[in-house]
Design a protein around this nucleic acid. Structure first.
Lengths: 299, 299
DNA sequence: CACCACATGTGCAAAAAATGCACATGTTTA
DNA sequence: TAAACATGTGCATTTTTTGCACATGTGGTG
């Protein structure tokens, strides 16, 4: 009579499923771990847990590595299809968004980080127009003519809610030809003009972290506008202390090299929204996209 | 040059996705929470987190309740399809399994719990034959002729690895016609023969939990074989103290009623595997299925 | 054959995520 | 006006996930 039983779908642990799917595709726990950015141990546990719960062996253990079982192979195909479907649906989400979003950003970050990735945004959201304004003004975002503002800030300073965009440490960079023999000792940098990205002089702090006296680094030879310092470094005009996010591009292109492994942490780039931004679809989409795109600049 | 970027699929948090999907289907966080067996707060957080991450509003907040947004509706369809696909694939997993699994089980549990659900197993795994043997023997499963054994045990007693199947508390049950005026005071039970499921007499413990003196409950009027006591209760031969799992079926059918809300916890049914069982596909499949099927008997 | 690189399993403690609770807000209904 | 809903949120707690370091077992190499 009341024996009805809502036949509700019973799903396996979805995160374990994702682990299995990656492992199956790669035929390797280690490579799956790499793809998902976790340790092989995590994958191993997920997969074993899934097998345990489903009551079937998904993989057969080989002496060296693993191999999908019959069940596993059949399952993998369907799971992959399902996850692909989700990925596509997620990708296409908001793809119909249209409108304009005005983004105000510090010049260096805009030029070195934002601009190079904007084309990806445009191909994903072709009907959203991004107006990127490079500006140092810290103006109140709600008065200023912008939906979103990307600003440098020390932790705890910003009063408004904001999203962390990048907190990469600052490193020492130089053009490769500045010192072809390479950088052995931190003292080497004293032979060159010391350029810096930040208004605050972080050279002394860096020196201390390297076990050097800070005093010689207090002196500021000459100081050029922050966003030009990096270009100066590229031209071989000195050594440069700046954040990895902005230097990465020139490093990748071989125009700069990182001289030492020692980094300095100081503040972060943060995203502030105008109140009205949450009602602007284009702005919401841009924020979501940006947070995803810059995920590797945090942590 | 090295600007290649493995365009790897980026998936949203899958558990949040499941929450969203349920919420979308029900058009209600509360009902979704109920379906997934969590609080509405959990759903709320999952959905908001997902919206936050995707950068789109999935729901519009109504004064009373919620409503899918345009994006949300489009997304829901695809996500539901994907999860259905996963559910189906999971369901069908091992469907091709064939073989025989011998399950040894205490008689009462076999009759009242296992047997009624076996038809579901057979429709899912038509080529697996289950030989259910009702037996009290606690024989070493590895000598005994069974792949799996379901046994009663107190926690920590079993030396071998085992899976918890059911730890439902024991309650007092009686045929509805035994006392048509209903059960007001725990003392009422003293007017009737006290039947019990377990060899150990748990009546005194139950009495103490109810704030009564244990002494009058020590006396054991008569004691019949455990698995018959329940049938005796159904026939109106007395009040019965037994575990919910086994009594549920007769309760649902109206042949028994639970007299008091007070329950007693004592031991649990556990599943023991023969060593060879892990190599028997049918046994693995049965174990997985059983653990899923009996999930509501635990916790 | 010794030895190293490789691939996965596992105990344990640390880190992160999910959850429930209790209460807040705002709305509809009686 | 009160009560019932439906969802949002701070906070403490629980649960899950994770990485690490080490174990095991294999295949290749000199």
């Amino acid at each position: 009579m009341h024996m009805f039983r809502m036949m509700q779908r019973s799903l396996p642990p979805l995160n374990a499923l994702r682990a299995f799917e990656a492992a199956g595709r790669h035929q390797s726990f280690s490579r799956a771990a790499e793809e998902l950015g976790v340790s092989h141990s995590a994958i191993s546990r997920h997969v074993r847990g899934l097998e345990d719960r489903l009551g079937v062996s998904l993989f057969r253990d080989l002496p060296r590595g693993i191999k999908l079982s019959r069940d596993g192979r059949a399952y993998l195909g369907q799971v992959t299809a399902a996850l692909d479907l989700i990925a596509e649906a997620t990708e296409g989400l908001g793809g119909s968004a249209e409108g304009v979003v005005v983004v105000s950003c510090e010049p260096l970050f805009a030029r070195k980080v934002l601009l190079p990735m904007l084309d990806r945004f445009h191909s994903q959201y072709p009907r959203v127009e991004v107006r990127l304004e490079a500006s140092k003004a810290l103006a109140d975002v709600n008065r200023y003519e912008a939906d979103l503002a990307i600003r440098f800030a020390h932790t705890g300073v910003l009063q408004v809610a904001s999203d962390l965009i990048s907190d990469t440490p600052l490193y020492v960079y130089a053009a490769p030809e500045l010192r072809p023999e390479g950088w052995q000792s931190p003292k080497d940098v004293l032979e060159y003009a010391r350029l810096r990205e930040r208004d605050a002089n972080l050279w002394p702090r860096w020196a201390e972290l390297q076990g050097l006296e800070a005093a010689p680094f207090e002196a500021h030879g000459w100081r050029i506008s922050a966003d030009l310092a990096l270009e100066a470094a590229v031209c071989g005009q000195g050594v440069y202390l700046g954040s990895r996010d902005c230097a990465q591009m020139d490093c990748d292109a071989g125009r700069l090299v990182r001289c030492f492994d020692q980094g300095v942490r100081d503040g972060a780039m943060r995203l502030v929204q105008a109140d009205r931004a949450s009602r602007n679809r284009a702005a919401r989409v841009f924020r979501g996209w940006l947070l995803e795109e810059t995920a590797d600049l945090r942590g």
